[in-house]
Every structure is written in structure tokens, then in C-alpha cells.
Design a protein around this nucleic acid. Structure first.
Ligand code: MN
Ligand code: MN
Ligand code: ZN
Ligand code: ZN
Lengths: 150, 150
DNA sequence: AATGCAATTGCAAATCATTTTCAATTAGGA
DNA sequence: TCCTAATTGAAAATGATTTGCAATTGCATT
């Protein structure tokens, strides 16, 4: 999770160029604190640079992901499009199957689970892709519950 | 995770038909204890029924998933194709970024994390999509490690 | 400031997993 | 056995993402 001022350094070090398009996409991602898909990022960027192309959005997202500057998420359980957000403190996501709401959360238990597995099997866990699906508090009231109820 | 003998019942109850193609695909999935993608399932099935179509494989997988008979997994971190396995005891997966090996594991900690979130936010967690990525024990020896090393 | 060139871009066409359309077939209840 | 809605195969369509290519542009170097 690099600080914004470190980004030019990162690019320079890897022989990458900090183009106007990349700067713009970084702005969009930084300003919009949300989980955006490529098309939405494209739309937002196009407002400030009408010439930017969707291909550049995808290419840039791939670069930013490779550099650890953005994180890619698969929030929808049936996995169509990816969503992106600036890399920040490690966190996970819950998606409501009913209303689509996404809730971020942290979890020491999940981190423990990763450590435990790593130690037990002598392997190295680089990343945890964790997404919980279910019904949010609002939707739970109305929806029929899955298992046994009180 | 229904027992094999319950499957006809499940189909009947939901007005679905137990066709020869569906029986065949259930056989393939049951016999091959592995995580198969749709194309592989198709290839295996075609050996016994050369007329079966890939469309039917996809349609059947969707039905079996909806009925909770098979589970869909996204094992590869860059999420191209899905993999399928018969629903069994809840478990998670670790994928080695180097050699592609997939390791199954169970985790009470992850289940705790789900319960904790559910209770804290009064929501209902129906399913946990958990995939850890990293380097397996074999590949860790050779690969440059990610963070600080001893 | 001018030069050189590899990295990057926009556009269009290409991929590729998955879905859909539709006419023909078939499971399974009456 | 009949009837009909569910299912199928084949081919075309979809939709997110990628790629080929010629034109542009950062940026290190004169
Ligand atoms: Mn997030
Ligand atoms: Mn498994
Ligand atoms: Zn909801
Ligand atoms: Zn490995």
C-alpha cells in the first residue's frame, strides 16, 4: 500500500512512464472511495480526458495492480466483472445477494487462518481472496432464512 | 451437500428432469475427485456420450450449483474459468502461483470469522468464497520471498 | 532546447469463457 | 400411450478483457 508520493518513484524504478492517462486514472481511483469496475473508471476518466480509451484503462489497471498500487476484487458471486480500489489496509468484503450492497470488514481471525495454514504446511500466503456472500441486515428481515430459525 | 441417493428427489421436487446427460455429468463429477473446469468436464463426458454439447454442460452445472449439488470455485487468481466439484464438507483452497497446485484445507478460524461478522452486523453469511494464493512448500524454497526473511 | 527511442496510446479487431436462440427431442405425470 | 413443458444440440451471440499495429509521447541523453 504505497503512499501517493511514492508512486512516481515506483514507476521510475520499474522503467514505467507516468503518462497523463495514468495520472488521471490514479486521480479517479483516489478520489472515488468505492469499488469501481473498469467501465465505470473509464466513464469517470473520460469526463476529464475524452480521448482516453477503455484499453488504456485495462492496461493501466493491470500495471497498477502489478505494482501493488490498486487491488482487484471479485465482489459479485457469479464473477463477471472485476472491481478495483486503491490498495489500503488489508480488508475483506461481504456482498448482499439481495441488494448488492458491499460491506468492508477487517478480520484478525482470517489473518490468523492464513498464518496457521502457512505455518502448518510450510508455505507462503501472499494474498487472501475472501468474499462473504449472504443477506445484509436490512434484507435479512424480509428474506426467508437459509437454515433453521428460532 | 446432498447424498447421491437424494439427487433424484431434489430434481423431482423442483420440477427438473433427470436426463441422461445430467446423470452422466453427475457421474463424471463424482468419479473424478478433482476441480474440473467446464471444458474438461465436457471432454470427459464426451467419451461416454459423444453427442453431449458444451452448452448442456454449462446449463447442467448451473442447475447443479443452484441445487447445492456442486460448488463453483475460482481457483486462479486472475479469474478466467471456473472450476467445479461435488459439494462436500466445507473447505477452502490455496493456489500456488508458481506451479498451480491447489491445496484444500479446512479452517475453524475462517468459520469463526464468518460467525463473528454475522453476529456483529446482524447479517446472514450464506457462503464464504475464500482462496489463498502464494507459494507452496516446494516452490517457496526456490522463489524469492515476498517480505523480510530470517 | 533538440534528439532518440522504447514505452505507451487509441482504435479496431480478436479472444475466450459463458450464455442464448430456436427448432427438435424427451422425461415423466396423467 | 399421450401430452406438454423441460431439455437438448448446434450455431450464433454476448460481454469482459486483451491484443495488433501504427502513431504518439515520456524521459534519459546529448
Ligand atoms: Mn474494499
Ligand atoms: Mn475443493
Ligand atoms: Zn441487502
Ligand atoms: Zn508450487
Amino acid at each position: 500500500m504505497p503512499a501517493p508520493e511514492d508512486i512516481p518513484q515506483i514507476f521510475q524504478t520499474t522503467g514505467r512512464r507516468l503518462t497523463s492517462q495514468r495520472r488521471l486514472l490514479l486521480e479517479v481511483l483516489t478520489e472515488c472511495h468505492d469499488h469501481l469496475d473498469a467501465e465505470t473508471i473509464y466513464d469517470l476518466a473520460k469526463r476529464r480526458d475524452p480521448n482516453i480509451s477503455l484499453a488504456t484503462v485495462y492496461r493501466t489497471l493491470k500495471v497498477l495492480k502489478a505494482e501493488g498500487i490498486v487491488q482487484e476484487r471479485l465482489l459479485e458471486p457469479d464473477g463477471q466483472k472485476h472491481h478495483y480500489e486503491m490498495a489500503a489496509n488489508a480488508h475483506y468484503h461481504f456482498t448482499c445477494l439481495e441488494c448488492g450492497q458491499v460491506i468492508e470488514f477487517e478480520s484478525a481471525l482470517i489473518e490468523q487462518a492464513c498464518h496457521e495454514l502457512a505455518e502448518r504446511l510450510k508455505l507462503d500466503v501472499a494474498h487472501a481472496r475472501v468474499n462473504l456472500d449472504g443477506h445484509c441486515a436490512d434484507c435479512t428481515q424480509l428474506a426467508p432464512m437459509s437454515e433453521d430459525g428460532p
